[in-house]
Amino acid sequence: MNIFRFAGDMSHVVSILVLLLRLRSSKSAVGISLKTQELFLIVFVTRYLDLFTTFYSLYNSFMKVAYIASTTYIIWMIRFQEPYKSKYDASQDSFLHIKFAVAPCAGLALFACLVKGELSPIDILWTFSIFLEALAIVPQLFVLQRYREVENLTGHYVFFLGAYRGLYILNWVYRSYYEQFYRHNWLVYVSGAVQTALYVDFFYYYVVSKYYGGKLTLPT
C-alpha cells in the first residue's frame, strides 16, 4: 500500500458516498447514468471473483464487498425504488448499449489472455473487467453532456471518480520504482490511461467552474 493507492481508493469511496448523498438529497436520479452503474457492477463482479480464491488483506476484501454492495444498492434504488424509479428517464441514458461495451471487451480479453497464456476463467474475467472499466464512465459523461448544466453533487461524483483513476496512475509509477518484484502489466496501464483521459475534458471545466465560483456548465 502506498499513499497514492490509498488516496485513490478513498477518492473512490468518497465518490460513491457523494452519489448516494446526491440521490437521497434530490430524491431523483436525473443526471445520473444507470448504465454506468450497471457497467461498474459488471466490472466489480467479474474482477473480484478472486474474493473466493485469493486472500490479500482484510482491507482488500472489505473494499471489494463494499464496492459490489453499494453499487448494487444504487442500481436497485434507481430501478425499483420510488421516487427514483418513476423519475428515471431511460431515453436520457441511451448512449452505449451495454452489449456494445461488453462484447468488444470480452473479445479483447479473450484474445489478450490467449496471447499471454492465461486461460483460467478468473484470469479472463479479470482482464475483461480491466477493459470494461475504461468504458464504464462513458454513458455518465454522455448524460452530463445532454443536460449541460451539471448539478453540484453530480459534478463532485465524477470529479472524485476521475481523481481515483489519476491517483492510480501515480500509484503504478510509485510501485514500479519502489517495489523490487513489481510486475508491469501493460494492459492495465493502457486501459487506465484511456480511462483517465476520458475525464480530462470534464476536469478542465470542473476546475474552471470551481475557480470562478460559477456553475459547472459544459460546452455544446
Binding site: R5, D9, H12, D50, T54, Y56, N60, M63, K64, Y67, W126, Y168, N171, W172, R175, E179, F181, Y182, R183, H184, N185, V188
Partner: peptide
C-alpha cells in the same frame, strides 16, 4: 507468483 502485482489492487 505468475500474477502481476496489479491483481492485488482494487
Amino acid at each position: 507468483s505468475r500474477k502481476g502485482a496489479s491483481k492485488d489492487e482494487l
